[in-house]
Simulated assay, not measured.
Amino acid sequence: MLFTHDTTASLMAAVALVNSAEEPDTMTEPAHLDAFFAEHRYTGSRTHDAAELAAVRALRAPLRRLLTSDRDIAVEIVNAMLAEHRAVPRLVRHDGFDYHLHATSPETPLAVRIAVETAMAMVDVIRADELGRLSTCADETCGGIVLDLSRNRSRRYCSTTCGNRIAVAAYRARKA
C-alpha cells in the first residue's frame, strides 16, 4: 500500500472532480454532485442547492493546478489552502473506516471539505516525493488527470475510454 486509505480516497475524488470538467462536463446538475458525494463516500452536511454545486465546480481549476504542479508550487498551494480554511487535523473513525484524518468539521461546506481533504492528501504525496503518481492523460486530445497507484507506475490514461481510443487508432493505423 503506497498511501493510507484516506489519502488514496481523497486523491481519487480530487482527480474525478477535476476530470469532470473534461468534455462532456459531468458535473452540471445537483444529481451529479449527489452521485459524486455518494461514490467518494464524503460525510457531513449538504445544502443540495445550486450554490453548493457552483462552489464545487469552482474547485476544479484550483485542484487541477495543485495536482499538476511541481513540488515547490504544490507546497505553496497546500499551505495556502490549509491556512485559508483554518484546517485543524484530528483523528476520526466512522462508517467502518479505522482512524484517519479530517481537518474540517462535518458542518463545513462541501467545497471546503473537498479542498482541505485534497490538500491533506497532497501533504502525504509531497512528503513521500510521489508527485510522479499524478500526470496528465497520454491521449493528446484529453486533458484528464491520471492518478497512478500501480506498483510499476504504468498507468498512462485517465480512463479506459482514452486507452481504448488510442489502442483502436493504433490498430487502424497498422492495418492501413
Rank of each mutant, 00 (worst) to 15 (best):
L2D: 13
F3W: 13
H5Q: 15
A9Q: 12
S10C: 10
L11F: 06
L11G: 01
A16N: 02
A16F: 02
L17N: 05
V18Y: 08
V18F: 08
V18P: 02
V18D: 02
N19A: 10
S20H: 04
E22A: 14
E23Y: 15
E23T: 14
P24G: 11
P24H: 08
E29Q: 12
P30Y: 01
P30Q: 00
A35Y: 02
F36Q: 08
F36S: 08
R41A: 15
R41L: 12
Y42A: 08
T43P: 01
G44I: 08
G44D: 05
S45H: 11
D49E: 09
A50N: 10
L53H: 01
A58S: 14
P62M: 08
R64E: 11
R65F: 03
R65P: 03
L66Q: 00
T68V: 09
S69K: 08
D70I: 06
A74W: 00
N79I: 09
A80Y: 05
E84Y: 11
H85Y: 15
R86Q: 14
R86Y: 10
A87I: 04
A87T: 06
P89W: 11
R90P: 04
R90V: 13
V92C: 10
R93L: 07
H94C: 10
G96F: 11
G96Q: 09
F97K: 12
Y99C: 03
T104A: 12
S105L: 12
A111L: 08
R113Q: 10
A115I: 04
V116C: 11
E117G: 14
M122E: 05
V123G: 00
D124G: 01
V125K: 04
I126L: 15
I126C: 11
L134H: 00
L134F: 07
C137E: 01
A138C: 06
D139C: 03
T141H: 07
G143F: 05
L147T: 07
L147V: 06
S150D: 10
R151M: 09
N152W: 06
R153G: 15
Y157I: 07
C158S: 07
C158A: 03
C158P: 01
G163S: 12
N164F: 02
R165N: 07
I166G: 00
V168N: 09
